[in-house]
Nucleic acid binder design. Sequence first.
DNA 1: CTGCTATAATAGAATTATTCTAAATTAGTA
DNA 2: TACTAATTTAGAATAATTCTATTATAGCAG
Lengths: 136, 136
Amino acid sequence: MMEIINKFKGKGFKLTPQRLSILKFLDGNTSHPTAEDIFKALKKTHPTVSFATVYNTVQALRDRGELQEITIDPEKKHFDPNTAPHHHIMCTACKRVEDVFADYSSALQLPENVSKNFAVSGNHVDFYGICKKCRS
Amino acid sequence: MMEIINKFKGKGFKLTPQRLSILKFLDGNTSHPTAEDIFKALKKTHPTVSFATVYNTVQALRDRGELQEITIDPEKKHFDPNTAPHHHIMCTACKRVEDVFADYSSALQLPENVSKNFAVSGNHVDFYGICKKCRS
DNA sequence: CTGCTATAATAGAATTATTCTAAATTAGTA
DNA sequence: TACTAATTTAGAATAATTCTATTATAGCAG
Ligand SMILES: [Mn+2]
Ligand SMILES: [Mn+2]
Ligand SMILES: [Zn+2]
Ligand SMILES: [Zn+2]
């Protein structure tokens, strides 16, 4: 937590109480929350908070490379404070998104005809399935 | 094209002129159009068409496994009439989505702790980068 | 400390993507 | 040819996100 605060010191990023609350919620969070999830959590400590604050903060964090946007769910965006390269799996029944920690990098070579046309900046693998809970 | 028409014969899927126009547009289309792209194309032949027709048809095709939804773009859904397993790369500048035909299936093994909790139904790899045109 | 200013918070309007509704139309078939 | 279930349509509704204008404040300079 102290880490986080120091990370943003003197970067033109103001550490407001609202932002601290969001940062605390996101710190080590592996639930891949949506903007609404963050908003709900934030309302507990800041009942009068605005949705715009959530989007503003999310955007500021994204711009600073401290938060990544997950595209696995066709319905809505999820966010992930873990910016290390990793992958995800979503249960198509309950929509929960879980982490997949595996290094596929050496296998994910692009075919010649694509690699010659793109300066590649990254990749991720999305898996889909049904989780144990949803089968019982 | 004849193929397409036969594919839907007698399945409770009515081949209306609007749908035929959409099917013709999608047939062999590798541009990964959004709903709006389909709508614009459809308006050329059917100027009074409604957006709901596009979404209805897209949904009907998706339900029949004839169209897949692409999640690579955080801004909007793209659609792909190629339902064979393959992957994609998006230019983060111009947002164009291109195909990546490569078989990574053998490499994409899930870690034990995930595979034991999920009945996996599929996966795809999303690549990001800047295309040649956007660099010049 | 105090005051300044750039940055952020807020409410609410606006925009965009998508879904829903209810009435009119029509493809496919009996 | 006539019927009916499926489809089209316009427009309203919903949901996610962005924008705008005003007010408040974090962090810094003096
Ligand atoms: Mn994650
Ligand atoms: Mn494709
Ligand atoms: Zn589940
Ligand atoms: Zn490009």
